[in-house]
Each structure stands twice: as C-alpha cells, then as structure tokens.
C-alpha cells in the first residue's frame, strides 16, 4: 500500500494542528467526570432546590459503581458518537471539494492507503479519547461512589469502543460517497441510531446487529453478563471492514471532483 506511512503522518499532524488531539479527549474526560460527580451531588442539589417540606426525607437509592460507568458509556455512545461523526464527516469529501485530494491522488500512491490512513487516525483518536475519558470516570466513581467489577467495566468499554469505531467508519464511508459532509454525518448517525432503536424493539431477532452493543454493554455492567456477544462483535467488525472497502472503491472510482 504505497504512501501509507507518509499519509498516516499527515493525518496525525492534521489531528494535532486542528487541535483534535486536545479537545476530543478533553470533552470525553468532562463527560466522564460529570456522571459520577453529578450523582454524588444529586441529594444536595435536590435539597438546595428547597421545595420540600421541612422534615421530608429524600431517599434516592445510591447507584452502584457499575451503574455510573454504564451511564458514562451511554453518554459516549450518544455525544461521543456525535463528535466523532461530525469530526470525520468531511474526511474524504472535503479533500474532493477543495481539490487537495486531487493533488495527492495523482502521485503514485494507492487509494486504499489514502482511506486507510484516515481510518487509522480516526481509530486512534477514538481509542485515546475513550481511554482517557473512561479512566477519569472510573477514578471518580471509585473515589466517590464505590468499587466496580474490573473485568466487566473493561468489557463494557470495549463494546462501546467498537460502537464508536463503527459509527466513525460509516461516517468515513459516507464522506467518500457523498459530496455534502452534513449528509454524511446525518446518514452515519441516522443509520446507527435507527439500528439501536430497532434492536431494542426486536432484541431477539436482531441480537447479532451492531445496534445491540450499547444495551449489551449496559447489561455487562449492571448484571455482569450479556449472553453470547460474538455474533454482534463479528457483524460489527464486518461493518467496519465493509465501510473501509466501500470508501476505497469510491475514492478509486472518483478520486477528484
């Protein structure tokens, strides 16, 4: 795959120069910390709101550590996915629309390397942001709320990593198919929101679908088991690979505008 190393270097540098290496992990960290902190202060906040009659006892069952982490991951599943899709919605189309890609693809490089370098940069950003944010959330949860089951917490996060990766990959694919970045983001987010919704409506029939990942992660963290996950993981991996292959085909057929 000619040009991969050089292109990867360029994507890496672009993530740094566009501040993505800084702000995306920071936002994940904030989302991660806020979950345990807000639960911790919830009784106080209700108290401060002060509409309760004197002597009323507020009794909120204190959530378990696993529940807090599940909540954090849910945030990542929605807002994290939104950020990733919006960050990469123009990955290919912008290079086509502005003409920067034409100048690269006339060089003796492979279109597969062009797409793969973008995918690897996206995957690295997803992995780093999720790891940083989740670590922060975990730390706060243990300090403020209580212990968590390490194995399940790791597995739950891994499922969400896969979820973010498949959303990001499809954003990349749509950016190679469609001219408009907004349409690409909308398609990627719409597809997976619909998939998650359908899977929650028909959990048995769609047990293999990537839409099961969020629910499976929650089950792991709350109940400690989620049944067999291999079909879901395998299908999701296929979706990721398929997205990259389709993007490569699109770039090869239509390198420039």
């Amino acid at each position: 795959m000619r040009g991969l190393a050089a292109m990867l270097g360029k994507e890496w540098l672009e993530l740094a120069r566009s501040w993505k290496w800084l702000w995306v992990p920071l936002v994940f960290i904030l989302l991660g910390i806020m979950q345990p902190v807000s639960y911790y202060f919830l009784p106080q906040l209700l108290d401060a709101a002060g509409n309760l009659p004197e002597g009323a006892v507020i009794s909120i069952p204190l959530p378990s550590g696993g529940e807090i982490l599940a909540g954090t991951l849910e945030q990542y599943g929605i807002f994290g996915a939104l950020i990733i899709a919006l960050s990469f919605m123009g990955a290919v189309s912008q290079e086509r629309n502005t003409g920067t890609g034409a100048l690269i693809l006339v060089k003796p490089v492979s279109p597969a390397a062009f797409v793969l370098s973008k995918w690897l940069a996206m995957a690295a950003l997803v992995a780093a942001s999720l790891a940083a944010g989740y670590a922060a959330s975990w730390y706060y949860t243990v300090v403020l709320i209580g212990p968590v089951a390490v194995g399940n917490a790791m597995a739950g996060a891994a499922l969400y990593a896969l979820w973010l990766l498949v959303v990001g990959s499809s954003a990349l694919m749509f950016s190679a198919l469609w001219k408009s970045p907004a349409a690409a983001a909308f398609s990627a987010l719409g597809t997976f929101a619909a998939l998650a919704l359908l899977t929650s409506l028909f959990p048995r029939q769609l047990a293999w679908s990537p839409g099961r990942l969020p629910a499976a992660s929650r089950e792991l963290l709350l109940e400690g088991a989620a049944g067999s996950l291999w079909p879901t993981v395998a299908v999701t991996a296929l979706c990721v690979i398929g997205s990259v292959l389709i993007a490569v085909r699109a770039v090869r057929a239509h390198p420039a505008d």
Partner: peptide
C-alpha cells in the same frame, strides 16, 4: 491543476516534503 489547493495548515516546506515522501 488550474488552481491547486493545498493543506493550508502545512508550511510550504512541509507540503513539499510530504509530496516527496508520497513519491
């Protein structure tokens, strides 16, 4: 091309080195 577009966030020298590495 008629009006070439580059990555505005790169320096001219960085772009040249990138082009060289691609070749």
């Amino acid at each position: 091309p008629q009006s070439p577009s580059f990555y505005g966030w790169m320096s001219g020298r960085e772009y040249m080195m990138y082009a060289g590495r691609l070749c």
